[in-house]
């Protein structure tokens, strides 16, 4: 019997409780069990139906969106995922014919309630769009615009630096803050839009296909950034790229397009909403399985 063996072997009773043999840690890893608690919900959608000209585009969606996690909405074109995400910060208000039924509770407050000001909602729930949409101004003014119109107090230089750093952009642009934002690359422009959003210190960031106009490296950077941001923000992302949802999100909702009985009008419906790894390794619904395995558009 070697000395080494003796040192590694401890008293049996003690060994049973030793950290290396901690059963709970070994069996239930970081991915958690099947019934992992979702944590605090930042949004509760109750029977939400969004219609254009009284024709529903997405119907009867009920789901909870967790705090400080990334929630992805996926599904084929026309399933209403963009429509759905736009009703979370009342961007649909900009379209006169749009209307929302059901309740969208944000921290238990219905954002479509009668006393709610859409502008207040959008201050707390930021949005990043499909195509980078920097303002035709300097990089500095792009970031400073939000804090200025909201009348935020504090040193503007500091606010701008914090926003840009938060979007991992500060080092790339700190020497050209007063140049026009249109001189940046597409990926940088999109991160500028994220930085702009961070500068007003929102609680939630909605991203509507934020990488669809970007190359893979820029996409990777934005995805890294999202994983970084979820420590402080709750993120909801719409993506037509299933792999992106798989890579970054904690929970995934899958929507489909359904034809009405008269087969004229199409509307989106929520099929399955679960932890992302469940959706991509063992979905409950066969339609989800067909979609994530790329067999059905």
């Amino acid at each position: 019997m070697s000395d080494r063996t003796m040192t590694e072997r401890e008293d049996p009773a003690e060994t049973r409780a030793s950290p290396a043999f901690d059963l709970s840690g070994a069996v239930h890893g970081s991915d958690g069990g099947a019934e992992a608690p979702m944590g605090k919900a930042v949004f509760r959608l109750e029977d939400v139906t969004v219609s254009y000209d009284a024709k529903p585009a997405v119907s009867e969606v009920t789901m909870d969106i967790p705090h400080n996690q990334i929630t992805a909405l996926i599904g084929p074109s026309g399933c209403g995922k963009s429509t759905l995400i736009r009703c979370l910060n009342r961007m649909n208000d900009l379209i006169p014919s749009a209307s929302v039924d059901g309740r969208v509770l944000y921290h238990d407050q219905d954002i479509y309630g009668p006393e709610i000001d859409a502008v207040e909602v959008r201050k707390r729930i930021g949005m990043v769009f499909q195509k980078p949409n920097p303002f035709p101004k300097s990089i500095y003014d792009n970031i400073a615009f939000g804090p200025r119109v909201l009348g935020m107090k504090g040193d503007m230089d500091e606010i701008v630096e914090r926003g840009l750093s938060g979007a991992a952009l500060w080092d790339e642009v700190k020497d050209r803050l007063d140049t026009n934002a249109f001189g940046m690359s597409g990926g940088q422009q999109q991160r500028l839009c994220i930085a702009r959003c961070l500068a007003v210190q929102p609680d939630v960031i909605l991203m509507d296909e934020p990488c669809s106009a970007l190359d893979p490296i820029s996409t990777g950077k934005i995805e890294d950034l999202m994983l970084e941001l979820k420590r402080e923000y709750s993120i909801v992302i719409v993506t037509h790229n299933m792999q992106q949802a798989a890579r970054v999100s904690d929970r995934t909702a899958f929507l489909i397009v359904k034809l009405d009985a008269d087969e004229k009008h199409r509307q989106g419906r929520l099929v399955e909403y679960d932890r992302t790894e469940k959706i991509f390794t063992n979905p409950s619904d066969s339609r989800t399985e067909d979609y994530v395995s790329g067999k059905v558009g």
């Binding site: 910060n89 961007m91 900009l94 207040e120 959008r122 201050k123 707390r124 769009f129 949409n133 303002f135």
Partner: peptide, 27 residues
């Protein structure tokens, strides 16, 4: 002036008037 500029501005919590005065008209 593309709608995306208005959306970007409104999404930051700017009002319609602020959006027109500070984004749309300068552009």
């Amino acid at each position: 002036v593309p709608p995306s500029i208005r959306e970007g501005s409104m999404a930051l919590g700017a009002t319609k008037w602020q959006t027109i005065w500070k984004q749309v008209l300068p552009a």
